[in-house]
Nucleic acid binder design. Structure first.
Length: 257
DNA sequence: AATCGCTCCAACCGCAGCCAT
DNA sequence: TATGGCTGCGGTTGGAGCGAT
């Protein structure tokens, strides 16, 4: 795929915007809108690339931008949403009116990550591990801090899978109570399904949550055993728990019990 | 007053995905 | 189906600001 020439090759300006450039950009967008970012700087008479104009507008000049420090409520919302959605800054920003993805990303890296780590350290010293394991995004763990990699939907660890076994024997049972030796023929679900479903559920898209409900009714979890793979069961439970974390609606926890 | 080190944030870079042809 | 153009997104960086020494 061909790439557009970069600003320098085109003789365009980079770096901080001047008040005059801001004024020109605002004035042009107010008069003509921003249907075509690539054509905009030329039309407006700015020596900037479209990308730079778009970023300046979205992150700084837009009239609905909320300036100033984040409130405690906003920070808590970001933490909850990040736990549920991972590094999907634009998705998080969509739920915080007046805040941009760039701003949220910055506040996460400068304040919240640190704050969360301190909380986790404090909790691990004082509290025993909860029985119900919450799937956390790996970028808030010590490991990802060092690697910097952020997979969206981490595979459950062996300990997570074993959390739904029949206790001390570590043996999975089928609906008849017979031991399951292999999950080879059990249905599996693509990881992206869950992240998509969670986004939709949080957005209030009932079609998506209906899909999960149908999935659960196909694979009941309240039987003496499970007739789907442990991973599907675990993902179902994590899905509802993440919806609860994001929406705060306790009724979403009902399918867990 | 000068320097150093750290924090914060605006802006850039490169890639992925969508859409038109 | 393949290709090219464009936008949007997430990761990263550079430098201004500020406090400590």
């Amino acid at each position: 795929m061909g790439r557009a020439p970069c600003c320098e090759k085109m003789g365009l300006k980079k770096g901080p915007w001047t008040p005059e450039e801001d004024r020109i950009l605002i004035s042009h967008i107010q008069k003509h809108g921003h249907a075509n970012w690539r054509a905009l700087p030329k039309q407006a008479g700015l020596l900037r690339c479209g990308k730079s104009c778009r970023l300046r507008w979205i992150n700084y000049l837009r009239p609905d931008i909320k300036r100033g420090n984040f409130s405690v409520e906003e920070e808590e919302t970001i933490i909850k949403l990040h736990e549920a959605l991972g590094n999907r800054w634009s998705a998080i920003a969509a739920r915080l009116p007046g805040r941009t993805d760039n701003e949220i990303k910055n506040v996460w890296h400068t304040h919240l990550k640190k704050k969360l780590r301190q909380n986790q350290e404090a909790n691990s010293e004082t509290k025993p591990q909860p029985k119900r394991k919450v799937k956390r995004e790996p970028n808030i763990t010590t490991e990802s801090e060092t690697t910097g990699t952020v997979p969206m939907s981490p595979q459950p660890s062996s300990s997570e899978v074993s959390s739904i076994t029949t206790g001390e024997t570590n043996q999975y049972m089928d609906v008849k109570g017979e031991p399951i030796e292999s999950f080879e023929n059990f249905p599996e679900i693509d990881e992206s399904f869950w992240s998509e479903a969670l986004s939709s559920a949080v957005d209030g898209n009932s079609n998506s949550t209906n899909e999960i409900i149908q999935l659960q009714s196909s694979f009941p979890m309240v039987e003496p055993g499970y007739n789907c793979s442990p991973k599907v069961v675990d993902d179902c439970m994590d899905f509802w728990y993440n919806v609860f974390l994001t929406t705060g609606d306790e009724s979403t926890l009902t399918p867990l019990f």
